[in-house]
């Protein structure tokens, strides 16, 4: 990855962070939109790193904590924001909201909130690549909790059996709901579960965007050469609760503080500044560019029309 691309990686993480900070703020204002926001603050390196390794034709399948994955895959901030505002101009005309955004324009084909529900679907999109002999991969994002679901087992077994070009990216943020990893599985590394499917598994520092990028890029090449699938576990941490309504009574303050020291944005920023690649001025410019993108997205969403109630009846069938 050259220096320009590294800066783009940093900028993407910053965009995800500021975009979601804005979502949280807006969700507390009853004049904007209500409801719980599920955000990936602290985990941005996984989305940005994986996104940087993918091409437009690659497919992603994601989950309830999806804003970062969507942005990193190239989805438009304006259209995401309008969808969360429930407006007709949003990606899905107000039918998805924050939780289920599909952006087929950038091959973000499925965001599902059924934990583990996307894993068999990703196996299916990968099957289609093999069946049609096309050179794209599917990346499926899910959490450590999802690896306890039956769908995980069925899909990884089938993907491995058929050598499908799919990269299973387990974003291990330590918690599954309110349960710490040791309370939901005895397995220390989710990547170890790959062994059960005769699949390659790998643990990556999920707060190191470059490491994630390199791991996904490597897995992508393996998949395209027919040596897939691969399970990549990105070790990271959820700074906030499951969602904004979660009081986090089960997360020790010192644990949160410790992980904030390992902020993925600060890390890459410091690395680039120490290497003389990024000036403080450039970083400030990045911050201001990102802020403008977010503000513009809010302006676009607020200026957008609401759907007519009867539009609820549309889009059920072709």
């Amino acid at each position: 990855m050259d220096n320009q691309e590294k800066k783009k990686l940093l900028r993407m993480m910053l965009l995800i962070r500021r975009f979601e900070e804005k979502l949280v703020a807006l969700s507390k204002d009853p004049q904007k939109f209500g409801g719980m926001m599920i955000v990936c603050t602290g985990q941005e390196a996984v989305a940005a790193g994986a996104g940087a390794a993918l091409l437009p034709e690659d497919v992603i399948v994601t989950n309830h904590r999806s804003h970062g994955h969507l942005l990193a895959k190239g989805a438009e901030p304006d259209l995401i924001m309008a969808e969360i505002f429930g407006r007709r101009t949003g990606y899905n005309k107000g039918k998805s909201g924050t939780l289920h955004i599909a952006a087929p324009e950038v091959n973000a084909l499925c965001t599902t909130t059924v934990v583990g529900g996307g894993i068999p679907i990703a196996m299916g999109t990968a099957f289609a690549a093999q069946y049609m002999n096309k050179d794209y991969v599917t990346v499926c994002f899910f959490g450590n909790g999802a690896s306890d679901e039956g769908s995980f087992h069925e899909a990884l077994n089938m993907a491995s059996l058929w050598n499908l070009p799919v990269i299973f990216v387990c974003e291990n943020n330590v918690y599954s709901g309110a349960q710490r990893q040791e309370e939901h599985t005895k397995v220390k590394d989710i990547a170890d579960r790959a062994v059960a499917y005769a699949m390659r598994g790998e643990v990556v520092d999920g707060n190191d965007a470059l490491a994630v990028y390199e791991a996904v890029q490597r897995a992508r090449e393996e998949c395209l050469s027919g040596a897939g699938p691969v399970l990549i576990e990105c070790k990271t941490y959820r700074w906030g609760g499951h969602g904004t309504a979660d009081m986090q009574l089960y997360q020790p303050q010192e644990e949160i503080a410790g992980w904030k020291e390992k902020c993925p944005i600060k890390k890459l920023q410091a690395d680039l500044q120490q290497a003389g690649v990024l000036t403080e001025q450039e970083f400030q410019q990045m911050e201001s560019d990102v802020e403008q993108i977010v503000e513009q997205a809010v302006r676009f969403a607020e200026a957008s029309p609401w759907p007519e109630p009867a539009e609820a009846l549309e889009d059920v069938y072709v």
Partner: peptide, 25 residues
Amino acid sequence: RRVKDTPVSEAGIAGLAVGASVMGL
């Protein structure tokens, strides 16, 4: 290639159909 015997995995079978169909199969 076109007649796939699968493991005994009903969720996998149905998910296969969902994912393959959205790609045009």
